[in-house]
Structure formats: C-alpha cells, structure tokens
Design a protein around this nucleic acid. Structure first.
Lengths: 220, 220
DNA sequence: TAGATTGTTAATCGATTAACAATC
DNA sequence: TAGATTGTTAATCGATTAACAATC
C-alpha cells in the first residue's frame, strides 16, 4: 500500500487506515443486535490495543459513555460520516479483464455507499459483454457516463502499459480520485488523489516471512 | 493491509515492506542497462528519503561504494536473497472466480520466483475449465498436488463464507503461508503465517480523502 | 587532492500504550 | 456508593531524517 496522499492536517493517516476496520466490526455488531461495545471488546476484534481504539475515536468526537462503553449505533454513524461512506460514491472501473470483473462483482465495491456504475475497456472483443448488470463500454464513452456524477472514484484495472493513459483519460473526465491496481507508479498531477494497490507486493513480503520461518526451523 | 505477522527479530516490518518496491526499481535499472545507482536516485524513484534507503540497505549488509553508489547487480542479488525471491515459490489458489483467475494470470504471481501451480474450486461447474495453462481442480485434490512441494504459498480467493474452511484445508495440506483476499479475519493456528489483503478497505480510505478534499473546496 | 556518496550517529518526529483521574 | 469504562496525560517505543565523518 503506498502512501501517496496524506496530510489531512487533522486526522493521522494511521488512524484513517483503521477506521474501515472498525466500521466493519461495528456493522457486524449491528447485524447481531449488539447495542453497546467497549473499547476493550472492539480492540480484541480489531487486534489492536484498547487505548488505541479510544484515542482513535477521539478524532470522531466524544462518543463513549464512561462506565458503559460505546453505543454501536452512534459509532456506526460517526465512522460512516467521517469516512464519507454515508453518502453515495459512484465507482467506474477501467479494464474489464478478470480483475476488473472481480472488482465489479465484489461486495465491497457495491455496499457502504459504493456502487460500480460503469465498466470500460478498449478491447473490441470485450466491449458489449455483460458483467453482472453492467455492459462493458468503450473508453470513449467515459466522459458521457460520468459527466453528471460527482465524486466519482476511478479504478485502474488495466495492464500496466495502459495505466498511465487510462489515468489521463479519467482526469480528463474530471475524476479526481483514482485507485490504481496496475503495478506502475503514475506520474500525474498532484491534485489527483491516487492510491496504489499492488497485489504481488504482498506476495513478496509473504515470501520474506516464509523464508525467515524456514531458516529458523533449519537452525534447530 | 493487516500486520498479522511480524517480529522477525532482525529486520523491521516497515523495512521489509519497502524491499519489494526497491526490488522493482532495481530490476528496471537492470533492464535499462543502468549499472550503478545512488541512494538519492533510488529514493526519488521510491518516493522516500535517501537516508531511509541507506539505512534500509544496511540490513542487507554493506552494499554500497562510498563516492559512487550501489552496483545495481549487487543490489538485485542482495534484495532477492533477503526476500527469498531468488528461489522458487509454488503458489496455489483456492477459488477460481474472477479474482482467482485474475491472480492466476497476474504477472506478479508468475515471476520473481513465484509460479501458480494449482487452481482449485469446489464448484462442479468450474472444475475442469481451463485458465491460462492450468485446469481448475477440485479442492479434494489439494493434498495430492502440493505434497511434494516445499514452502507452498496458499491464496484464498473464495467468498468470505468459505474462507475459514479453505484455510483449514490448506493447513491440512501442510501449507503454512496464506495470503487471504476474503474480507474475513481468519481464526487459525498462530503457527500459520497469514496476511490479509482487503481490496474494499482501500476504497473506503480513498473515500475519506475525497471527502476531505471536497470539504476543503467548499470552505473556500 | 577534490568531489561524491556511503554508513552511521544523534536529533526529531510520530505513534503506541500504560496508567489514572473523570464520570457514567 | 461501588463498579466499570471512558477520555487524556505522560511515558515509551519505534521510525524517519538531518548531518557528517569515513572513504571510495
């Protein structure tokens, strides 16, 4: 995960990174009719320290009740609001290969306010094909599709070679938040918010720890 | 990205996280016939501080030449060795949906020593279908496929509901390193190295920064 | 020798957490 | 009032980085 954007001025990036995790836990409490949760319980579920939880929540205001804990409903609203997942986020995906299709169908991309409203590709062989309830559109239709939307988030799920051009097309369509799944560092205008997600990077880090473990075993 | 495994004792997790990035940059130098690179140049490419680069490299030994820089070839070998990407890593993927197929075809999963050697599913409708040069196998064949391999890495690309059982199947097949793409925290034996990759989490963090930016704009 | 860049020290910065007064 | 848990302080821990002596 690359840290391309930060500097909120207000709330530390590390805290922001934990909010979605808290949100997921709190939502499962909601589903299970749990009304109140303590920082200790939440900390257990999130695998962090309870002081960290309490400190993190102070960035959302004074939400808890001393002696009792946090009302789940209150937490849910506060975190959603802070993340912005309480309102709609249209998402468009460029690249209708396996990854693009996987993301289009992914529950995380069609809940919490997010919904995939367009799937684009340049390959004539996939344009027109059906994915879920979407039809793959040519990239040339991007502007038209997003022109009446606000705060559209663009996902780059193209091959690395096409990533840069795709980013420019998105910016041209006034998309200012881009999540890039192609393993390339995009060299684009700083006013655009870019987050890079590199799936194979995780694999290499995993290899490191496996090597460590294997070495340790062989020492015995 | 969750920090489930750490505690190398030797090399800090933050440094490990940067090694794959350095490796990619160094590899591109190799491809471009660049023989020597300074910490300053590398830092620029990786978007970190040059002192950080030099400090990170001390964990790999004393690799540089004062007054000149680092030999690209030397760096490449040292980082590959430390990460373990200098030897073969068999990878098996459970879940032959769009995500599983995307990962199977992903260059990052078929380079740097990694190669996907098996793709598994429980759904009779996809078992037997061809993905790249692999045929989707039933989960019941997992043990047989990996029994002669060492250091196999298992990828969970199943729906969340099947993640836990899949993890147990992998452990049963003696797979001790698991990369989990399902949005569930696996409750399994601590001897198994698990890394969780949550794609939608990134989307929520992105939403936060977009909200920030939108708010800032409306303040003007 | 002059110029450059490493490796390392020491300072700084930021994040985590133990501890506890405040208070439900 | 007794018990529990928050919100916050202060200590600790770890990571980053400026600065520079070492040295190619």
């Amino acid at each position: 995960m690359t840290r391309d954007i930060d500097k909120t001025g207000l709330i530390p990036g590390k805290v922001v990174d934990r909010l979605p995790l808290y949100l997921r836990i709190v939502k499962s409490c909601l589903n299970n009719q749990v009304k109140v949760i303590s920082s200790e319980e939440l900390a257990d579920a999130a695998m962090v320290n309870s002081a960290t939880v309490r400190r993190d929540f102070t960035f959302l205001g004074s939400l808890g009740v001393r002696g009792s804990g946090y009302e789940v409903e209150v937490l849910y609203r506060a975190i959603s609001q802070k993340l912005g997942t309480n309102h709609a986020w249209p998402v468009i995906i460029a690249g209708a290969g396996n990854l693009g299709k996987a993301l289009t169908n992914s529950p995380g991309f069609n809940s919490n306010g997010f919904s995939v409203v367009g799937l684009f590709d340049v390959d004539a062989r996939v344009i027109g094909s059906q994915v879920n309830d979407l039809v793959v559109q040519p990239m040339s239709e991007l502007n038209e599709t997003v022109k009446d939307l606000t705060n559209t988030i663009g996902i780059i799920a193209t091959p690395p070679s096409a990533a840069e051009k795709t980013a420019l097309d998105m910016i041209n369509a006034n998309i200012l938040s881009i999540l890039n799944f192609a393993p390339t560092l995009l060299k684009i205008d700083k006013k655009v918010r870019v987050r890079n997600v590199d799936l194979s990077l995780e694999l290499e880090v995993m290899a490191f720890y496996s090597t460590q473990a294997a070495n340790k075993k062989s020492e015995i």
